[in-house]
Design a protein around this nucleic acid. Structure first.
Lengths: 351, 351
DNA sequence: CTGTTAGCGCATTCAG
DNA sequence: CTGAATGCGCTAACAG
């Protein structure tokens, strides 16, 4: 385990110079730096992150708070954040925080139905900044996070007072609904917003967009069909609708996974899509095309990349120095209707 | 930023006692511990991971090396490892290392076709143990990893000299093939093994199993159809087979994603599955059922959980103390044929 | 441009 | 069971 002293001795300079040389600070003569680098290399010297962190007060790590790891949106975000951070020499501290009652991975163990309060202790003194992915934050948690006093960016939604990047979820809900209305549908329902407080914002916002579009068209918006966002939830919802005999002519789904479940169960029940029922999703999930799902696509990697870039900018030496608190920016990225064959003209239905 | 000294002062004990009390060491009187905990709590004291690490030589972090984040197998492993480690108070240091030439997430940038050598510098002095997920390791990289001198567990394959947990990939390939042979198929092909060296082991092993089964049945094993493991690769492979007019009667796919792509392209081309062609995959991916895909299921979360448990056991104070290097264990988990409707009896074909 | 000097905040001896 | 003293390996002033 070579230490900085070994390198200093081998090079005939002080440890301070070694430190400066290896970190690429300007104030080192090139020949000196070269010798130091050579010695470090040949000794296999790797700086101790712990020691550097203790001495400098910076950790060179960014916290990544997420409610899920394996769901598409989150997985892509994590992948992107990790890749970008690493090019900057930063580590990612992954913290998975269940959004609510759910089964943990592994042989059937369950967490209590209410998620434990987010404790900032997981992050304090361990990261220089934090990125939060679409985690439903209760006000108290937001306070706790802000109290950490470092860069904080939210991805996949909007949080008052926080810098955030995402899409315009209301507009997405509206566009999806308008697409169906434009096809002549009048009985359009929305699937995917659970109405309990503290729930995911995007589905709720998309539901708002749905209601706006319905109202603007002079139609009565329906109650949201409550469902979580997985394939299984989509299937369950359709089974329920079929059992009750209240299948609408068109369905706006909060996301593609859900829509794929809906589609599958409809087709399996012999319902013609889009002949009898039209279905639209949100995401443009990689599997959406396989199911011929019309959807509103959103750029996920780009959202994560922008958030990471903001964080890196804020961490650049000199930034935020003069008490220049960055204005809470909010960037909404473009979305786009992707036409496939799960939506079609409304049919005159037998009464 | 309360420090351990503040807590010591507030409690009227030494910092050493605070340290011992908060870490739950036995040698502290219960009343003392209670007072310390109370003070720590009310002061909002959180130990500095960096200082603790520097002083103790342990990092309370585990490295997680993975070639992908968003592909199903890896995402589930990451999710599981993170969850289990956190219950033990360990952090996960996620390191994504592209397996070879591939596009990085985000707006179209590409990595050089040959993956950069894994540098142990990313891990050295930063983690107490490492879990490697199905990363094709060249011998030199293996050496480098072992030189870290800490716990090392491999998930999703076998590496000589390394503790590993996975499935019996040869048996999986054999079972899948035997299933098709049992249905009377004789022209069975294998899709998914790229033959370049340093390539993923599981697809290669499954291919071996395929060949064993074919040979045992007195049939000539075919060359593997080269493909990566994504939906797009499956589709591309089928298009190619159709163009050449060499569609076999049955296909063993290296994994479900690939198989789903294969299935989709076949059905879209009007090929009857399983009437004209049977398809089987490996994984039991969550979407497999939607495509009616017959497959060999493997327990992914359980593999990750076992690996994590091994690591935690090795990190327990006292473990590995008496130079008791743990024997390189290898655990193979059970797999199981999941029958759906993508495989069926061989048909007499027109000549 | 480089060296000297102090800590950073804890865990761990070793005494009691 | 508890306290005092030591140092983990580095960075950040401050001098030169």
């Amino acid at each position: 385990m070579a230490s900085i002293e070994d390198v200093a001795r081998a090079t005939g300079v002080s440890t301070a110079t070694v430190s400066r040389a290896l970190r690429g600070l300007a104030s080192v003569a090139e020949p000196t730096r070269a010798r130091v680098q050579l010695a470090a290399q040949s000794l296999g010297y790797v700086p101790s992150a712990a020691a550097a962190s203790l001495a400098s007060g910076r950790t060179k790590a960014v916290g990544l708070l997420t409610p899920h790891v394996s769901r598409w949106f989150f997985a892509v975000c994590i992948e992107t954040v990790e890749a970008v951070l690493r090019t900057h020499g930063y580590d990612v501290l992954l913290v998975q925080l269940p959004p609510g009652g759910r089964t943990t991975p592994g042989p059937s163990r369950t967490l209590p139905p209410s998620r434990p309060m987010l404790s900032a202790d997981l992050l304090r003194k361990r990261v220089d900044a934090t990125i939060v992915l679409t985690l439903p934050l209760v006000p108290e948690e937001l306070t706790v996070l802000q109290a950490l006093g470092h860069e904080l960016v939210y991805v996949g939604g909007t949080v008052p007072g926080l810098r955030s990047v995402g899409i315009d979820d209301v507009a997405v809900g509206r566009s999806a609904t308008e697409h169906l209305l434009g096809l002549g549908h009048t009985d359009v329902a929305y699937v995917g917003a659970s109405l309990s407080p503290g729930d995911w914002a995007p589905p709720q916002e998309r539901y708002r967009g749905y209601r706006q579009a319905m109202t603007a068209a002079g139609l009565e918006p329906g109650e949201a069909l409550v469902a979580d966002l997985t394939v299984a939830d989509g299937r369950r919802t359709v089974r329920e609708l079929l059992r009750r005999g209240t299948l609408p002519g068109a369905l706006v789904c909060a996301c593609d996974e859900l829509a794929i479940g809906v589609l599958h169960e409809l087709r399996q029940a012999g319902v013609d899509v889009p002949g009898q029922v039209s279905v639209i999703g949100v995401d443009d999930h990689p599997h959406a095309e396989l199911h011929d799902l019309t959807t509103i696509s959103q750029p996920v990697a780009e959202q994560a990349e922008t958030a990471t870039r903001w964080v890196m900018e804020g961490l650049r030496p000199g930034a935020r120095a003069g008490g220049t608190e960055p204005a809470p920016r909010s960037e909404r990225m473009p979305t786009r209707l992707v036409l496939r064959r799960s939506t079609g003209p409304a049919q005159a239905r037998a009464t």
